[in-house]
């Protein structure tokens, strides 16, 4: 890093490149040089389902090491609000996904303060993709949100920065098991309650067989009014 870049991070006057996102000005925020060898991973099953007016995200609550060999935490929060009308369901290394959430949340807020309105889903998902593309963060999130341009939508993101939009999606180590439920039960025009139940059932089904998933379900419902998050011990409790 050149001396110019170092001052660039802390001063306005030397910002010769305009109003860039935080992570471009200050790559340390998303740069990871540490050894992730024994870091806790979520393993995880994450699911996203859209309805006419909402995007529903769900995830299990287990963190583990050794690919689910040992459970290190039984109450891990893997669905986080990152925007007034968007949330992320996260799988990957715990530390990486926590940093990803902090950076994306701040970028979203900075965008809103600068421009008056929060980013659209297109802008938010593109930004999230470019953060992942430009950093070694081992995170594969699903984004779910609602905006005026495209209504409710779910995006799958990968470590290479790929961004793909879909009506429903799953991710994490329990992905195949969750997709089994989604392919059976998803249909367009679900009610929000049905969408929450299907998403939770997909997570629960994966938790039965994937040792890196389990210990309950977090379900977030994103509408134009905001993000509503609830936690359940079992899919049957979902309302």
């Amino acid at each position: 890093m050149t001396p110019t870049q170092q001052t660039d991070a802390s001063t306005a006057g030397s910002d010769r490149h305009g109003r860039r996102p935080l992570h471009e000005r200050d790559p340390d925020l998303v740069d990871d040089t540490g050894d992730a060898g024994n870091a806790a991973e979520t393993g995880t099953t994450v699911v996203g389902v859209t309805t006419e007016d909402a995007a529903v995200l769900a995830a299990d609550q287990r963190a583990s090491v050794g690919g689910g060999r040992f459970v290190t935490n039984k109450d891990t929060r893997k669905v986080e609000q990152i925007h007034p009308t968007a949330a992320a369901a996260l799988s990957g290394t715990v530390g990486h996904l926590q940093q990803f959430v902090r950076v994306l949340r701040s970028e979203s807020r900075l965008y809103a303060d600068r421009r008056g309105d929060p980013p659209s889903l297109t802008a938010l998902s593109t930004l999230a993709g470019s953060i992942l593309r430009s950093s070694p963060l081992a995170v594969s999130p699903l984004l779910g949100g609602v905006d005026d341009e495209q209504g409710p939508a779910v995006f799958t993101l990968d470590g290479g920065g790929g961004v793909l939009v879909d009506d429903y999606a799953a991710g994490g180590s329990g992905m195949q098991l969750a997709y089994g439920v989604l392919e059976q039960d998803y249909e367009p025009g679900l009610s929000p309650v049905d969408a929450r139940r299907i998403a939770a059932r997909a997570v629960e089904s994966a938790s039965e067989r994937d040792t890196a998933s389990g210990n309950g379900v977090t379900v977030a419902t994103v509408t134009r009014e905001g993000v509503d998050t609830a936690e359940y011990d079992a899919a049957g409790e979902v309302a």
């Binding site: 306005a12 935080l22 200050d26 925020l29 902090r102 950076v103 701040s106 807020r109 303060d113 600068r114």
Partner: peptide, 19 residues
Amino acid sequence: RQLVDLARRRAQRERVRYG
């Protein structure tokens, strides 16, 4: 305007760094 943006960036960086 420049100073406002400096303040905005620092406000968000504080959240990233310290939560």
